[in-house]
Design a protein around this nucleic acid. Structure first.
Lengths: 200, 200, 200, 200
DNA sequence: ACCTCCGGGACTGCCCGTTTCT
DNA sequence: AGAAACGGGCAGTCCCGGAGGT
């Protein structure tokens, strides 16, 4: 009964906050976290006051951006590997990574930048970076174990070794963003085939 | 015949130049290329004028640092994989990478930073970054081909696929610098075993 | 008749107002009127809006703080010099000033800051500052006149000259807050003796 | 023989530095040390870079300004009280202070601001403030001692007490800058007479 | 009526990469 | 190669308003 107007003002603030993160994400992806505070605000059409109000400091904004980015990436990976046997799900992760990385959406530079920033200029990001690294690795190893349980992956392989190798290789391909899309795609396809043969 | 005293004049300048690159390398490795010009100069005991004199601009210094860094890394890799059959040389690369990456020498952050900077704030680095990526990949593929030629690597494997996979995985491990040294070392060892079994 | 419960409504607001002045007094005494608006509000546990609601602007708050401070100081001085002959009351003012100034209560910095601010950044304070200066001087001169009337102060002294000299010297000691307490106390004691001999 | 041209390079820098201090002195005297960095630079016709180059930080500039101000004031006082017997020199200090304080040159607000800032927002000034306080007091006490030695000041007075009282009273008059010039001058004249009678 | 939330502008100090003169 | 100065930019912070809860 009292549901029509909840749009009030708290929701507007949330829209602002969301828009700021989105704008900052684009800027960061394109130019790294050296992007200026006001540029982000200007993109959304507000002033620095809003940014400062919502995130407290530049570090706060950077953190929010990275947290949102890794969450979004995690959702995509999980969605892409939701169904099928273990082998199929692992290959699906590789395939979707190939598509996403080669889409040249600047978004994916963020995933590298996070680790780099955490190690150099913004130590406060270290916990976030470590958490996402561990989550990705464990997820991949889990897929291998599932595959061995359902028989789609050879049982004599070392699950941990295979999982972290696939994970590391994907990160390596992610770093090699400067090559033409075709080349990058070609490599990941080759990699995929090698893995497919290895686990069969 | 061309030996006497002329060493003084221009050689002092060369020592300064070398010292500047070294100091800049340390700074960049620790904090990324956002390091200030004067900080580098102060480390060496000269003023900004000297930097400007030798490198023309900040970009010039950054380029010089990265070129020197990739050359140095290349020399190390080649030295570590100089002798033996193809399989042995490839495994030697993996082993030496494990040692170097886990030495926590900040130097190795440079190798990641190069690709990141080239893709974002310093497009002038792109040719350098691309060149080193290609060189590393080709070197690894070459080792695989050698191994297949001398019989130390199974001939039915796709040489290109194996080479670029190993190369990508190593880059992926390089990115994961935030984990404890022991963990990182453990992973690379697992990876090494997996490769060793695969190529046998 | 006017007692029951209405205490709640408006009295809470008055408590807030009082608490804000008190908090602002502490902050101003410690760091001058450059103290931030929110810091004061945060000390009390409210937000800037409350300050704006009660005082209209920063100037309003500053004025309220200074008015309260000078009133409080006046009450103390009058209380300390309430009884006795003229000479005794004047010496009592000196003694109580010695105690208060050397208590290192930051409160007493406010009395200097008022004159400084009034002369520089906040002209609106000038009437307040002038009023308190005149009141202090006149009070001291009045004490001398009383002393001459009751025979405790030599009648041949120029009452105005003596009063304003004592007053000025006390302000001078107030300014010299940086010295160790012992030194400051020693000086005022010497000053007191000199006055005592002079008026006898 | 080689002395004609040294005006060129380094002297221009010194002129700039001097001009910056002068401009800052005016601004500080008028509005306290909250004056903006660029405003000072703009007054001289240079940019903030020059200020930063010469003083390193705002604190550096503030310090330089105060040091220069107290030195200048000391020179004036010493010059005004250079000749005559002890009593004459002390009265000359009072007279010259009367002239200077009532000249309404904003310069003299600096002398109060120094002590205030040192006690609140700029602790780094404390040593300077303490030093100048001690120097003034000791100078005045020294004049009294000289006067007693040459017979121009009654020998039975406590030299220390008289010196620090006169010194404190002068500071007190300095604080009371808000009153009309005529009143301030009248007070100091009364004070001067009282002292003159006391020491005779 | 009292107060909170959200945001607006406007500065300020600091710093940085560069150029010019010597 | 150093000393001096330039000019642009950035993060942080501050004092205020106005819309809206309670």
């Amino acid at each position: 009964v009292k549901a029509a107007v909840p749009t009030s003002r708290a929701a507007a603030a949330d829209r602002t906050r969301r828009a700021l993160i989105e704008a900052a994400t684009k800027r960061f992806a394109a130019a790294g976290a050296v992007t200026s505070f006001d540029a982000v605000a200007a993109d959304v059409g507000v002033t620095k006051g809003a940014l400062y109000h919502h995130f407290g400091s530049k570090d706060g904004l950077v953190e929010a951006v990275y947290v949102e980015a890794v969450n979004q990436h995690a959702r995509r990976v999980i969605a892409a590997s939701g169904a099928g046997d273990g082998a199929g799900r692992m290959l699906a992760v590789i395939d979707s990574s190939a598509r996403l990385y080669t889409s040249r959406t600047p978004f994916y530079r963020l995933l590298i930048a996070l680790h780099h920033d955490a190690a150099t200029t913004r130590p406060s990001l270290a916990p976030i970076a470590r958490r996402v690294q561990n989550a990705q690795r464990d997820y991949m190893i889990g897929l291998v174990r599932n595959g061995q349980a359902d028989g789609s992956i050879r049982a004599d392989l070392d699950a941990e070794a295979l999982g972290l190798t696939v994970n590391a290789a994907l990160m390596g391909f992610l770093v090699q963003q400067l090559e033409p899309v075709a080349a990058q795609r070609h490599w990941i396809a080759k990699f995929r085939n090698l893995i497919q043969e290895t686990i069969a």
